[in-house]
């Protein structure tokens, strides 16, 4: 598995789940969608519109817009800036929206 949480010295509280492309992902209150996905080894956030290239978290601070995903049906949500919520439905963004795999 790629990606992991550092647990030493931190109590994150009670975990919850959300889904990414239908698969369950574990997260903690306050954790960003991107952090939860990285820890789960899910690193592709979007597929670019013009060249259909896989992209993922890059700047980690809201300026590059590479981490945009479809969250509860809303496209172009920055996974690095948005806290995960229990039951949230997250999808890989294909071009401008969820794409066919929705």
């Amino acid at each position: 598995m790629t990606g992991f949480r550092i647990t030493d010295g931190i109590d994150r509280g009670t975990a919850f789940q959300f889904t990414c492309d239908g698969e369950a992902v574990t997260a903690y209150p306050g954790e960003s969608i991107a952090a939860a996905l990285m820890a789960a080894g899910h690193r592709r956030t979007r597929v670019s519109a013009r060249s259909q290239m896989s992209r993922g978290l890059y700047c980690g601070m809201g300026v590059c817009w590479e981490c945009i995903m479809v969250v509860d049906g809303k496209p172009a949500v920055r996974a690095c800036m948005t806290p995960a919520e229990p039951g949230m439905k997250v999808q890989t963004q294909h071009g401008v929206g969820p794409g066919d795999g929705a």
Partner: peptide
């Protein structure tokens, strides 16, 4: 440089400081 798994130094430090998460292993 656009492949998932390539991140900036800022991005890595931010994930560490803000989330205590490391986005890869090797």
């Amino acid at each position: 440089w656009t492949l998932p798994g390539v991140v900036t130094a800022g991005g890595l430090q931010n994930l560490l400081k803000g989330q205590r998460v490391i986005p890869g292993r090797r």
